[in-house]
Amino acid sequence: MGEDFTQQIRDKAKELLENGAVECVIGYETGSDGVSARPAFIYDAAEVDRLAFDNTCTHNLVKYLLDKKGKSTAVVVKGCDSRALNLLLSERQIQRDKVYVIGVVCPGVVEWGWNKRSEQLQKRCNWCRQHTPVVSDFAVGEPITEEPPAEFADVAEMATKTAEDRATFWRDQAERCIRCYACRQACPGCYCIDCFVELLDPEWVGIRIAPDENWMWNTIRAYHLGGRCISCNECERVCPVNIPLSLLNRKLEQEVLDLFDYKAGMSEDAPAPLITFKKDENLGIAE
């Protein structure tokens, strides 16, 4: 990876900007600490050498395409990020012909930290079953064809606790939440113009930053991503109080797989499970 990937991305970005195919290339550059990557927006071919790729490139850059609607943009995506492209395409949020996808086969990214390079792979990379981007116009790296089946040990572990312990666990998490909505802001699937949490009429969630309201927010945020979450886990990474949001997301991912045999973001035209149905399914309801 490293330098070779970086060079391929720079060369491609240069070409795209020089021939006017795109207005902006969204990639990664080294951050102010000199260690960890951060998103970079390159508008000028002379600046492509800012671009870099290494195992600290954690951000899901697809989120930024929502700010670039209608403008030709190239974006660097990893396997997980690429599923967000399909999600946004299927939900008609972006146009395929306006996006040039530089798809990087991702060997995994390390725990994100300021001023320190961790050697520890992120949790999500241990679960990852999509190292190779599902969409790309230009591929960087050798595709990985065989991925092992999904596993949900963390979810299963939670399920061994009593209901009371589970409720207490999530209550404690809600108590810590400061309702900054960073989870939402980082999520490529969260793009509602008016999020339910900020609606005043009806006021679904009160503005108190308190356990009840926070619990409601976290529950519904996760649910609204049910069958849509593409497991980039950026929500958990950006959380300033380290709420294990991946547990909720993965629980839903598992259920969606079990109930509907569906994995989000794998294709741009498979309908999301909650906007469709089968007549002859009972899903364990009113049997």
Binding site: R38, P39, A40, F41, K63, Y64, D67, I178, C180, Y181, A182, Q185, A186, G206, I207, R208, V238, P240
Partner: peptide, 28 residues
């Protein structure tokens, strides 16, 4: 606006900051 390209407007900076003091008011 170039800097804001990167910003995801997540509010984290303001909430962890010891001197950010904006607030909202509403009835409950």
């Amino acid at each position: 606006s170039r800097l804001a390209d990167r910003c995801i407007h997540c509010n984290v900076c303001a909430y962890v900051c010891p001197t950010c003091y904006c607030f909202d008011i509403r009835d409950r």
